[in-house]
Design a protein around this nucleic acid. Structure first.
Lengths: 335, 335
DNA sequence: TGCGCTAGCGTGAACGGTGACATGAAATCC
DNA sequence: GGATTTCATGTCACCGTTCACGCTAGCGCA
């Protein structure tokens, strides 16, 4: 195939030079080569190139869940959107690997390791760190998105102060009985950070965290609905709900509407993530914005930097989060 | 690297045989080789392998929009979920390419073509067929998901009879003034098929299609909301709405709720896609199920079949669609 | 005993590029 | 005007695998 190219032109290795537009090629020959390439509709083979150069210009992306469930989560959606954008800009390709049913925890990582087809890997945290260790052991540069315990560079939102701000906001509005709809994976570090933030805000206000007002869900709208049902079935229901993502907050709002409880005048609701729909609801949702897309972009940029030789210390880069106050929160009623 | 392996064992090409578990290897040697591979923590190089075998065991996926917007659409989400599953099952990798801002129509295809890194490509239809032609010219096996005019194998839902069924259902309930919330790309073939279905149902009932009751949106919840606003601002609002996807139907329902119009007793609403949320709404949404995930699975299986040498004629495989009647439709009021 | 067959393994040549170095011609220098 | 530098191009080895052979030893069989 290369032979064809230089038959059209004159030489051989020169073609390679042209392709990699190295200097030291006369404009005239370059043009001839380019023309020949076009005529023969020649495309270089990545396989051969990556064999010779020992790199693939491809970045792996390991998802925590199958594609359809991962992307059903607005936060992940935005994050990966950010990754995608940066990857494309820098002319890398994106190879995705998602877990299969048999071995949700590790199969995606394993598949990525087995075929040595990527230069580096971006991992969505959240399913334990074993898989990440696997990748690191296999010698891949790895950047994690989210909270990880392993020593790899990572980018993460400031969950703790996000939660702190949200809780503080509710406290400032006079709420005292504040329910949490948290995640159902206590080991999850993001979860822990958020709980820490909530706890700290309450301590700073001189109040303990009301442990039995902590319900859990699995980040879907439905689970938020169910969790809220449990909370509002109680004899002494909360006056405010802080959910650990927007979907669950929306689920809670739906339950409240069904029960005829007014948001925000009877109960305030706060979400987490600031997904696009949050602002479109009625009432629009007060929520903690965590800049998901930026998270992904930053991760991708970091990894690409590493591939270009930049040394990145294995510490998390923390992106600030920010409380967005909208209509779903209001002062607590007297009484 | 291979040298290391056979140093540990005894031979050289035998290692290759072991890796591809070809026969003609004594169990004893095989074990020794495997042990050596493990000891040296050896992983074969995809690059070299694909160079030698002239295939990459990777399937390309060309998305119509950037990752974050593509997957925000529940239909695409499910579809790609199906693709992902089958691809993983068959031990292929998935390389995704999405368009950039400068050249939305073709950049994703081009990028896929340029680097010759995949064995075949799955394309989501909907952004014109030029890109697909590009891929075909470059010699890739291509399977399209959705309606295409190019001569490549494709899988598509039966949009026409889906729409027919939905329209018929509304007509049977006694509705006459039935509004459509269609897409805003008249050239889109899926769109045309659905319109055809609607029109046919009305003709079969002896009624023409009411052209000025056709609003358009861009398949988001908000656009459905806006389209519905236009429809119900009219002096003679419709008694039923048929939206071309669930998101727009939900947007329409939201508008109706805001205006205090009861669904289904005053106005019936029908969606398209049967997304997971459709069944969770109150009232739950009557909608046309199009088996998105199956669509994706089928496409992936078809492509993999082609890669294994199966000849597939360049005709669409049509998956039946099916009307799911739930609570959002009711008989038209008298008068 | 001699022959052919087969199972098991090794050999050499691709696959399609890249990178280091060598070469030759033209341009520059003294 | 010869020596030296510079620019443009060619040569060669190698990246890590697979594939099509070829070789060898052991076995069965006449």
């Amino acid at each position: 195939m290369r032979h064809v190219a230089d038959r059209a032109g004159v030489s051989y290795q020169t073609v390679s030079r042209v392709i990699n537009d190295a200097d030291g090629v006369a404009p005239a020959t370059r043009d001839r080569v380019l023309a020949a390439m076009r005529d023969l509709n020649y495309r270089p083979s990545v396989a051969a190139r990556s064999l010779a150069r020992a790199r693939t210009d491809t970045i792996g992306l390991v998802l925590p869940f199958p594609v359809d469930v991962t992307f059903a989560n607005a936060h992940f959606l935005q994050t990966i959107g950010g990754v995608d954008r940066v990857v494309a800009e820098n002319d890398y390709s994106l190879l995705v690997s998602s877990p299969n049913d048999e071995d949700p925890a590790l199969s995606a990582h394993r598949r990525m390791v087995r075929r040595r087809a990527v230069d580096g890997v971006i991992v969505e945290a959240g399913m334990g760190d074993e898989g990440i260790e696997l990748l690191v052991e296999a010698g891949y540069p790895v950047v994690a998105i989210g909270h990880v315990a392993v020593a790899v560079p990572s980018v993460q939102p400031d969950d703790e102060s996000g939660a702190y701000g949200a809780m503080q906001h509710l406290l400032a509005l006079g709420h005292r009985r504040i329910a949490l709809i948290a995640g159902n994976a206590p080991a999850n570090l993001a979860q822990q950070a958020r709980l820490r933030g909530c706890r700290r805000a309450r301590i700073d206000a001189g109040l303990p965290l009301d442990e039995d007002l902590v319900a859990t869900g699995e980040f879907s709208l439905e689970s938020g609905h169910e969790a809220a049902a449990r909370l509002f079935d109680r004899a002494d229901p909360p006056t405010a709900v802080l959910a650990f993502n927007d979907a669950m907050a929306i689920g809670a709002m739906r339950l409240l509407r069904e029960r005829g409880i007014d948001v925000p005048h009877e109960v305030s609701v706060v979400g987490f993530d600031d997904t696009p729909t949050a602002s479109l609801l009625t009432p629009s949702l007060t929520t903690v914005r965590i800049f998901s897309s930026e998270l992904g972009q930053r991760a991708a940029r970091t990894l690409i930097g590493m591939l270009h030789g930049t040394k990145v210390p294995p510490v998390p880069a923390v992106l600030p989060s920010q409380l967005v106050v909208r209509q779903s929160t209001a002062p607590a009623r007297r009484g």
